[in-house]
Design a binder for these strands. Structure first.
Lengths: 116, 116
DNA sequence: GCTAAATGATACGGCTGCGAAACGAATTGG
DNA sequence: CCAATTCGTTTCGCAGCCGTATCATTTAGC
């Protein structure tokens, strides 16, 4: 059964989740950073800088910088591809999984309590 | 009937909507700006700088700056409160409504097509 | 082997948002 | 009336992200 949302419900869901993120003490990622994070966790590996840049439709430095930032936060990590040492493989971390699981939980709670 | 999302669905929904926003040519708002926009459109008026600052848990200059930015984009507008001229009332615009309706539509479409 | 191509990182200048503090205008209250 | 309060804005120095161009390293092609 498909998830059926009314327009008002969609907006309310986004507002409440966004509000929770603003209120929370977590580092606030930019839209691009968050999209990269979700993509790495949800789409099949391997993930490279170039691949992510194409997937998001942004330039490579955007990915490199986002990896610097989120790497420092331990939300993602880099590894050199030993079979082609030009490539960098982007991988998940435990901290990133925990972060996204908490986020998913927020979304689920807000969705469940949405007025109909 | 409550909206029931699995954790993976919640994340996938966020990823696809975020990806659509990154791909789109619209100006990308910060998380705070977007939260302010949604709050003004979804919660009962009147909205003031101070009220929004308290609601979001941020300082007043954050609101002022966000209104400068989103005002230039015509997503929101300011009006002096004539009954107490210290106050500024923040109001919706046609452009803002169109913007959020399009956004809601994206969310609805992505939610509907979510794998179960 | 040696040039050309591919990959990710870096340098640069510019723009935008941030928090803290100070400010001007408007209102309140004694 | 006039000092204190309230409200939104502005200023300041700082930090982060942006796109473009360039770089070093590694691989591919001939």
């Amino acid at each position: 059964m498909a998830i059926d949302l009314k327009a008002e419900q969609a907006l309310k869901l986004w507002q409440e989740v966004s509000m929770a993120m603003v209120h929370g003490n977590e580092p606030d990622l930019t839209l691009r950073q968050f999209t990269i994070l979700l993509t790495v966790y949800l789409e099949p590996p391997p993930h490279t800088v170039r691949g992510l840049a194409m997937r998001l439709g942004v330039t490579k430095p955007v990915i490199t910088r986002a990896l610097d930032t989120m790497g420092a936060l331990k939300l993602l990590k880099r590894r050199r591809d030993e079979r082609d040492r030009r490539n960098v493989i982007i991988q998940r971390t435990v901290e990133g999984s925990v972060f996204l699981e908490a986020f998913a939980d927020t979304v689920r709670t807000k969705a469940r309590d949405l007025p109909r």
